[in-house]
Design a protein around this nucleic acid. Sequence first.
DNA 1: GGAAATTGCGCAAACGTTTGCTCAATAGAA
DNA 2: TTCTATTGAGCAAACGTTTGCGCAATTTCC
Lengths: 344, 344
Amino acid sequence: MSSTTIKDIARALDLSVSTVSRALSGQGRIPDVTRARVQDAARKLGYTPNRAAQVLVGKRNSGFAGLVLTDPGYGREDSYLGDYISGLGHGLAEAGVDLFLAAIPEGQSELSVIRNIVATRRADGLILGRTSEVDPRVDYLLAEGFPFVTHGRVATEVARHDWIDTDGFTAFGQAFDLLYGLGHRRFALLTIEEPMTFRLHRTEGLVQAMERRGDPHVSLRIVTSPRYDAARRAQVIRDLLQSDDRPTAVLAMFDGLALAVLREAEGLSLSVPGDLSVIGFDNIASAAMARPGLTTFDSDTHAAARESAQMLVARIRDPQAPPMKRLVRPRLVLRASHGAAPAR
Amino acid sequence: MSSTTIKDIARALDLSVSTVSRALSGQGRIPDVTRARVQDAARKLGYTPNRAAQVLVGKRNSGFAGLVLTDPGYGREDSYLGDYISGLGHGLAEAGVDLFLAAIPEGQSELSVIRNIVATRRADGLILGRTSEVDPRVDYLLAEGFPFVTHGRVATEVARHDWIDTDGFTAFGQAFDLLYGLGHRRFALLTIEEPMTFRLHRTEGLVQAMERRGDPHVSLRIVTSPRYDAARRAQVIRDLLQSDDRPTAVLAMFDGLALAVLREAEGLSLSVPGDLSVIGFDNIASAAMARPGLTTFDSDTHAAARESAQMLVARIRDPQAPPMKRLVRPRLVLRASHGAAPAR
DNA sequence: GGAAATTGCGCAAACGTTTGCTCAATAGAA
DNA sequence: TTCTATTGAGCAAACGTTTGCGCAATTTCC
């Protein structure tokens, strides 16, 4: 029923609890023989330290890293959340830290959930996704001196906290160059409502690559997809595809939107890539299954999540270390949704 | 830095810690005035109880529901894990319970992770996925009297614990009937290595539907996919599709496998559904994006997860309540991967 | 008006760990 | 042989909370 404690080991070996504790933690002056005996007995008795007790003496922290679950909108989450969480789990497990997920109760904000976590010290650190250009969560946690890592940057370039991000700037420039090289001149960018930082970077990367060409025949239309309303989203895409000066190439902020374009193009009997090239971002599972296969950038969510977990663990260990930043270059995955621009 | 404790309140009000504790918990004989004073002071001082201490005395539980992250194998997790976790999160949030995810450290078993969670009371209850016909986790938790809910059943029909499951038996029978009605006679079932209970039910549903027909022309081949080796998995599927008496209809244990069949059929230039009908199970995100769209059963992962969370909360509240069981009927989603059997 | 019951609250132990301090036993040095 | 280091290990306090028990003061009951 009640599990083995350090006391049981002590009794079995006729030692004191202190000695056992030290033998297990490797802190005091303990001869190797004793240490071995203790570790042996611990294994044999199936001893696992009681976290609560460790937390209480202040030795350990809660042993949790927190993640607040937010509704992504834009249709189903697809494989992204799963990849992300499994990556976090692996990165944290290596350090013996567990992951704790807080959902946002009805009527509360993400920030208030975060405040609560910090106040009750339920987690030793937080991982923040969906970072926006001006992010109150970042400001708050910075002010509290609470460890955290963001997946995505905030707008200010001054690095005051740890982040990991995917280089959407370079990627979207690369996508433009690829499509331009294939003869495309009429571009569209399908984007999102919220001012998340990746939107800024990806847009900027595309625009700057365009300007670099200095080709007056190149045009770009930026179309915003509604976040929750799937029907309106489909309509927005159809409007774009049916307009007079229909683009021949559509870049989407991420695969979910790109796949929606594929779907609508199919509905309108537009050939992809014959009439229309489509490129996404993230390489979610569905991107490979779609026909034509979606050309996209693999941002290796699992690895990035794992790495952010490791950053957080490091940060928790050493709160004074200088801010860490990591920009990951996504890999272009060439599938079948892009091709030469249609003649005419 | 260090937060307010019960002691601070006691000192401020010139009371003993016991009185304060009782006033806050409402346990002892405390006059309303005192209680009000204490609660007031607690609010003013920003008191939040130390969870670790509460856990240690065994009064309160951790306020967490635990989920052990397991590697699913069979290729990517796709949208399943994300849907599942977000469902759990919502179900738990309603009850103010947080979700805690434990990864399995290198070299450890899921069971040992579970033991540890139970022993240290890191969670008040557990949610178990991937239930197998004989499941040591279930036996262990039952013996410990630790609250848990399984998503999926164990083999024994006697209900000794709470579970929620999708009715694969009926679904696979339904799938057979659909395909039989379309003229199919040569069937294959693509299954998995491990003795998970859903494998049993789904196979049984298919087999019994077959036997019910009593048609001697009906044949069934059962082919097992390797769990981790994607290349061998592809080979196994190709072998099936290239064999002399190639099946005209393939049922897969779940969508991941069905999509693999679609992919290999494409590679072999077999037309789906012209030459081959394929039906999956779960309706993951990729199923809708695949071309042809995959006919499958929607098991509404999000809702099921949410419901299992609610069951767990109820179980934690009342450990004595009779076992709850819930069998969810999946919805057949007709897409384009099935059709009439090829002539001849 | 005295006994009994009730009320209000404090003492102290307990939960499992960690760790500063202490101390006996042994080893080494002079 | 005596003095000093070193080694091995135990004592006890501390972390913040809950709770059984006890006790004085007050109220209730006959």
